[in-house]
Write a protein that binds this DNA or RNA. Structure first.
Lengths: 233, 233
DNA sequence: CAGTGGTCTAGACCACAGG
DNA sequence: CTGTGGTCTAGACCACTGG
């Protein structure tokens, strides 16, 4: 009996993937524990742990202390989206990036905004509206509210050449946030800004970030018709 | 000088996060190497490595051999979306799941489909159209093509009570895939199925999965107006 | 209570890429 | 060529949780 040896965690992972794919281990099955696999594979348990932990993070395995490791019954596809600065996103597409500030002022936000940001209903926030361009064509419309209590420096920034999108990343650290993707119909105003027919289907990204208990900024990004957000599985 | 000690990788990670957030280490800065940090933190280098590697995976740090570890200049937000079976998605919302098959036949697909799936242009594929319901209301419209050369068993399946969405996960392993999110305007046909006004803005998920070099299935999921895909940062 | 995964350690060697 | 992160090892202890 010729047992191949597995010298690194990637090859262990590959072998486990192979067995799952080949249905030697079926969805829901309990697989041998780390010590047994380490012995079989001729490597340290640490190495097996590294491989299995990584597979669990990908949703391929379900691991529970004492209960052991099982092949996930409902493999959950984890799609990881990299949300970077829009300028870089455009440049990576090989296009020329452009930026236009449309509006900048301090204003009392609609209740939906102050409610979500948990700011006082009467408190004026910094409001920025801007257009991001790719090869001189409208790419994304940014509508943003900034909490001046958390980011006072923003009040001094004109945001006329550097986008709030980019400035905040460097000057306003956040601890956590929420993001939502949806589709929305272009209002006449939005259609005019993005240069598309009214009622076009737009791709929207809404993001709200926090620094501890205080909201930092809330932004809605609207992308023109045809925009796709892609990733691999 | 009272130096706190860090006994596990999570606390090391926390401390690194704190330093970045407090701007002790600024975006772009080179931070001490693993050995130095291990000494400072009073733990093994392995433990520091675990903490830093994890932060690098989150996009907080940039690590390169020999060049060292830097605080990411453009922190890329990694949004991880869990794409599971629609039935479970609905049930997790606390709603009753329902399913209706609309159509099932073998047909030669449009060129856009056979092209993307790299199947012969004349080869008939299995075509399924179905509606997923939440609390008896339309939730998502599924339009799917299945490659019978890769999943021959699918030809025996009626898909009248178990959705292709769910059946395939258990019977058709795949090695990799692509997924794209976008917004689209409802065609009259789609509007009728989803019970929404024509030209409504719909949220679309397009997925294409492969088993090695052969495509397994290509599916488009259309969600009714107002649907959001949410996650944390 | 006992079995499983989770983690830490100290030391070692290796692969890569910067200078 | 050399410093950095990447990984492996053997052994140990711990934390959680199922039965």
């Amino acid at each position: 009996m010729n047992r191949p040896s597995f010298r690194n965690w990637q090859s262990v992972q590959e072998e486990v993937r192979r067995r799952i794919h080949a249905r030697e281990w079926k969805p829901g099955d309990l697989i041998p524990n780390e010590s047994e696999l380490a012995q079989e594979f001729g490597c340290a348990r640490t190495t097996v742990n590294r491989a299995l932990r990584s597979l669990a993070e990908s949703g391929v395995l379900d691991r529970r202390r004492k209960a052991g490791t099982r092949v996930a019954a409902q493999p959950v596809a984890k799609a990881t989206l990299d949300i970077s600065v829009i300028r870089i996103e455009v440049e990576e597409r090989g296009q020329k990036y452009g930026y236009q500030r449309i509006e900048r002022d301090a204003a009392v936000p609609p209740l939906a905004i102050s409610g979500a940001m948990k700011t006082s209903a009467q408190r004026p926030l910094l409001h920025i509206r801007a257009l991001h361009l790719a090869d001189d064509a409208p790419y994304a419309f940014e509508d943003r509210w900034i909490n001046p209590d958390v980011v006072p420096d923003a009040m001094q920034e004109p945001f006329d050449s550097v986008s709030a999108n980019e400035w905040l990343l460097r000057h306003a650290p956040y601890t956590h946030g929420e993001i939502a993707f949806s589709a929305t119909s272009a209002t006449p105003d939005e259609a005019a800004i993005l240069g598309c027919p009214a009622s076009s289907a737009l791709f929207a990204i809404d993001r709200l970030t926090w620094d501890g208990a205080a909201s930092v900024t809330k932004v809605r990004l609207l992308f023109g018709p045809g925009h796709q957000l892609r990733t691999v599985l």
